[in-house]
Simulated assay, not measured.
Amino acid sequence: MSGKTKQSQKLLLFRLSGERLLGLGTLKIREILPFQPLTKLPHSHHAVIGTATFRGSAVPVIDMAAAVGYPPLSREEREKASIIVTDIQRQEIGFLVRSVQQIVEVDWRKVMPPPKALGHNAFVTGLLDMDGTIIQLLDVELLLARVYPETLEPQDVVLTDVERETLRTQNILLVDDSQVARKQLCDVLDSKGIQYQVTANGDQAFQTLLRDYELGKPIDILVSDIEMPGLDGYELAFNIRDNASLKQPFIILHTSLNSEMSLSYANQVGANEALTKFDADELLHAMLRGAEQSSH
């Protein structure tokens, strides 16, 4: 692969309430459907309003406005609404939104991290200024964690004593812009007593790699999200591979997208492995393969 990584990405813009525009990467989206009658699900979260039929399968539909704290759409509003069918974290989920606006192509490097003042409960991973209009990029992982809290329960993975000690010898760096994804990654390693460092974006991660290399403690294993504001996972991997002076870590790119295209592109930019979030067993065993490679 030559030259810079491809940084443009398409975003679907939509509205939940008022004039505020939100964005969702189109790689996550399978289809946009007009509202259809839904089958109610008993004992479900208040934001899960039923299931829709999509290509012969029942797909749960979440009223996105209700899930993030806005008033739910009324029966009349639903009739004019759309269902965005997404493929995220190994499952198809529909999101009911008030109105779909357009698809735009954006430069991912121009996405700004959200201000810290928004706090931990903001469902926003980034902000984008498009001709004076601020687009909020939705933190779908946080939204799903609120609707399905059981998905955050730590998965127990059995490691042998040798495997656990092998990982404890590694200098591990985790990077993800979603606080939910960072917690899942940290919980897995904490449960095994494995040390690591963690950053919230690719720029911080690259600076950490450079710093640790200069200190004589180079990063052995990097686990990075793909979709992040600023330096995304693809460009982070590319920049690392493009830097001949760095000791090259084993790179695992991690994505909530069930997309063959995103995984194949991860290999093109120099990632050793690409995994779909979130499976603790897959992750730890990919890290063990990295530890084995770094010892050779």
Rank of each mutant, 00 (worst) to 15 (best):
Ser74Phe: 11
Phe278Cys: 06
Ile84Arg: 00
Ser262His: 07
Leu11Arg: 03
Lys80Gln: 11
Thr199Val: 08
Val269His: 03
Gln197Phe: 00
Arg30Phe: 06
Ser256Lys: 02
Glu105Ala: 14
Val269Asn: 01
Asp107Met: 06
Ser74Cys: 06
Gln248Thr: 14
Gly290Cys: 02
Lys277Gly: 06
Ser8Gly: 10
Thr5Gly: 14
Ser82Asn: 04
Ile103Val: 15
Pro115Asn: 11
Thr208Asp: 04
Leu185Arg: 05
Leu257Phe: 13
Ala266Trp: 01
Gly56Tyr: 09
Thr26Ala: 05
Gln293Ile: 06
Asp225Gln: 09
Tyr213Trp: 07
Leu142Gly: 00
Pro72Cys: 06
Leu24Pro: 00
Asp281Asn: 14
Asp203Tyr: 15
Thr169Ser: 15
Glu79Leu: 12
Asn239Cys: 12
Met112Asp: 05
Arg211Glu: 15
Val111Gly: 00
Gln91Lys: 07
Val100Lys: 04
Arg30Met: 07
Thr51Asp: 02
Asn201Ala: 07
Gln9Ala: 14
Gln195Leu: 08
Arg20Ile: 15
Glu150Phe: 00
Gln170Glu: 15
Ile226Cys: 10
Ala274Leu: 11
Thr166Arg: 15
Asn267Tyr: 15
His46Pro: 14
Cys186Met: 15
Val61Tyr: 14
Glu214Pro: 01
Gly290Gln: 00
Ser8Lys: 13
Pro218Trp: 05
Ala266Asn: 06
Ile252Asn: 03
Ala66His: 08
Gly290Trp: 01
Pro34Val: 02
Arg55Met: 10
Thr86Val: 03
Gln293Tyr: 10
Leu288Asp: 09
Val175Glu: 07
Ile226Asp: 08
Ile240Arg: 04
Thr276Gly: 12
Thr199Glu: 07
Asn267Cys: 09
Gly3Glu: 14
Ala274Val: 04
Val180Trp: 03
Met1Lys: 10
Val61Asp: 01
Gln7His: 12
Pro34Ile: 06
Thr86Phe: 03
Val158Pro: 05
Leu215Arg: 13
Ser178Thr: 07
Ala286Tyr: 02
Arg55Glu: 15
Arg30Thr: 02
Arg15Pro: 03
Thr166Gly: 03
Lys217Leu: 13
Ala205His: 08
Asp281Glu: 14
Val106Met: 12
Gln248Arg: 08
Leu142Ala: 04
Ala286Leu: 03
Ile194Asn: 02
Gly132Gln: 08
Asn121Lys: 09
Met64Pro: 00
Leu231Asp: 09
Phe206Asp: 00
Thr133Asp: 12
Ala52Thr: 15
Leu288Asn: 11
Glu214Cys: 07
Arg90Met: 05
Gly23Ala: 12
Lys110Asp: 09
Thr169Met: 14
His45Thr: 08
Asn272Cys: 13
Ala205Cys: 04
